[in-house]
Structure formats: structure tokens, C-alpha cells
């Protein structure tokens, strides 16, 4: 029987289609990441920790909600690892669980300022809520 951690890793690799073994630990993703200082775990650590199966800390980290999906790491990685896709897969692993939505309908009224574009709300919903 595979343990839960291994199943999660398998699911993350399947969803993201990322081959984490391609990472050569250059750190360019974290060098380019605009959300670096907001994050507890950084793009290269997401890749490394998924590779080694140390996924639990990532599941519980606020870092999941700091990634801007700006794809800077995806485009600039010399090895084509695509770290943003790993972050997305880990985040989905969390928010797909019951009661784990990051953004709830009750939060919305306070956010609306009369100017905020619909795009912001639907995007945040896609990223943080299932």
C-alpha cells in the first residue's frame, strides 16, 4: 500500500505534468519570482520538496496563495521545469478538499470597491476556491 504522501505526490505530478527531476537546482525561478518575499517556501523549494516527497509543509503554507501565476519561472527556467504548475497542483490538492476554500462568497462584499474589474474576482475564485 502506498502511503498518503506518495499518493499526493503522484497526483501532483500527474496534474502538473511536471518532471521535477529535470531541476538542476540553479534557483533561477526563485531569483525571478516577484512573490519571493511574501513566500515561506519558494519556487525552487516547491519543486524540490515535491521531488523528495516532503509535501505536508507545502499543503499548510500560505505560500500557495502568494504565487501570482505570472509564469516568469516557467519561461525563464533553463531546464523547462515549470515550477508554477507545481505550485498550482499543490494548491489544488488543498482547495479541492471540503471546507478548504481560500476565498469565500462572504468575503466578496468587503472587497468590491466600485472599480474592481470582474476579471479580478473570477480569477481569484478560480485560483482560491473550488
Amino acid at each position: 500500500m502506498k502511503d498518503k504522501n506518495e499518493l499526493i505526490k503522484e497526483q501532483i505530478l500527474y496534474q502538473s505534468k511536471v518532471n521535477v527531476r529535470k531541476c538542476m537546482r540553479c534557483g533561477k525561478c526563485s531569483g525571478t519570482c516577484p512573490a519571493y518575499d511574501e513566500m515561506e517556501y519558494h519556487p525552487h523549494q516547491f519543486v524540490y520538496m515535491v521531488e523528495t516527497g516532503d509535501i505536508e509543509p507545502l499543503l499548510n503554507s500560505e505560500s500557495l496563495y502568494k504565487c501570482l501565476t505570472c509564469f516568469a519561472c516557467v519561461d525563464r527556467c533553463p531546464r523547462g521545469v515549470e515550477p508554477a504548475k507545481i505550485v498550482e497542483a499543490v494548491r489544488l490538492t488543498v482547495i479541492r478538499q471540503q471546507g478548504k476554500n481560500k476565498l469565500k462568497p462572504d468575503d466578496i462584499p468587503d472587497i468590491i470597491d466600485g472599480e474592481i474589474p470582474q476579471q479580478a474576482l473570477v480569477s481569484a475564485y478560480r485560483k482560491f476556491t473550488k
Binding site: L68, L103, S123
Partner: peptide
Amino acid sequence: NECCGGYVTVTDPGFARKRSRI
């Protein structure tokens, strides 16, 4: 060609402010 903070403005306006200012 860097990010303005995007949708994070919804959940973390402070972070979006930092990005936009840059």
C-alpha cells in the same frame, strides 16, 4: 513584463500594492 500583483489584489491587497508600485 513583470506582474502587477494580479488577482492577489482580492486576497492580499498589501502585496498587490507593493507589486504595482514597483
